[in-house]
Nucleic acid binder design. Structure first.
Length: 269
DNA sequence: CCGGCTGGGTTTGCGGTAAG
DNA sequence: CTTACCGCAAACCCAGCCGG
């Protein structure tokens, strides 16, 4: 029972909720067990980490926001997206590149997004915005903020987002009882056109490979995507934010590559 | 005339593959 | 652990034709 209570308390702390008042154990047996535990167990991370700096400003409790602008030689005007089997031309100003970082790959209801990166063209500049939650309870604010960036004319751009990011966000919006802002939007998923063209030519068609072959991007100090869940969970449990910042860095690079690959495939210099 | 084979075109099914 | 899509192959369908 004590272990259960402790687990519950931990979960409530992670969720950003105040610790509930726990009634003292009824029997002396239980009390002795609690005392034994207190004596022989220690918190998972006894020392609060020194490095707890998360980038960006807090725009809501537990929700951090960053906005950067990248210089880019040529913003797209109208894009012929038939290479991605979108028959109607796409206005560059309606593009919304997006990429999520999540707690795992399992896709189902157990997986949540802790970071949403989105990038679009604002005039002559490429704008990258990122949302990161530092508590479970901030998820709804993050989802609402991301929704406010989209409109019915938005054309989503992603890498495998049709199968991964979009369905995952759809379940997160449903669980948060919020309308799904991705519903009905056109979606340009670059994975499939890339595969059609370079499958069998390159060793694989992962985004990291595509950006290297097509854009000459060489990532330095890159955190593998598979380590993203641990980076966030470590921070959530009071650990250092070092790797969480690297996840944000990685996410921003993914967004730049998304735009680069799109322009390359649409034959825009 | 009728049953069954064949060729051309479409549909269905399955394996592989990205995403953290 | 999941989900969607692509590409390829097997299956399927139908028409046309030939042999019995």
């Amino acid at each position: 029972m004590s272990a259960l209570l402790q687990k519950l308390r931990g979960l409530r702390t992670e969720a950003g909720l105040a610790a509930p008042v726990i009634a003292p154990p009824a029997s002396t047996d239980v009390r002795r067990l609690v005392q034994f535990r207190a004596k022989h167990t220690r918190p998972a991370l006894p020392i609060a980490s020194l490095d707890r700096e998360v980038v960006g400003e807090e725009i809501a409790p537990g929700l951090r926001f960053t906005e950067t602008h990248a210089d880019w030689p040529s913003p797209p005007g109208i894009i012929d997206a038939r290479f991605a089997r979108l028959d109607d031309p796409v206005h560059g100003a309606n593009l919304m590149h997006f990429d999520t970082e999540t707690t795992g790959l399992a896709g189902g209801t157990g997986t949540r997004a802790f970071m949403i990166g989105a990038a679009d063209w604002v005039g002559e500049r490429f704008r990258i915005r990122q949302l990161t939650i530092t508590s479970m309870s901030a998820e709804a604010s993050m989802l609402r903020t991301f929704a406010s960036w989209l409109n019915p004319e938005t054309v989503l751009v992603s890498y495998n987002g049709k199968c991964y990011d979009a369905p995952l966000l759809a379940t997160r919006y449903r669980l948060a009882r919020l309308p799904n802002p991705l519903m009905g939007l056109r979606h340009l998923d670059l994975l499939h056109p890339v595969r059609r063209r370079w499958k069998g030519v390159w060793e694989n068609c992962r985004l990291a490979t595509v950006e290297r072959q097509l854009l000459g991007v060489v990532r330095e100090d890159d955190l593998p995507g598979s380590e993203a869940p641990a980076a966030w969970l470590t921070y959530l449990r009071g650990g250092p934010a070092t790797n969480l910042r690297r996840v944000a860095h990685h996410n921003a690079q993914d967004l730049r590559s998304l735009a680069g690959v799109l322009l390359h495939m649409a034959r825009i210099p």
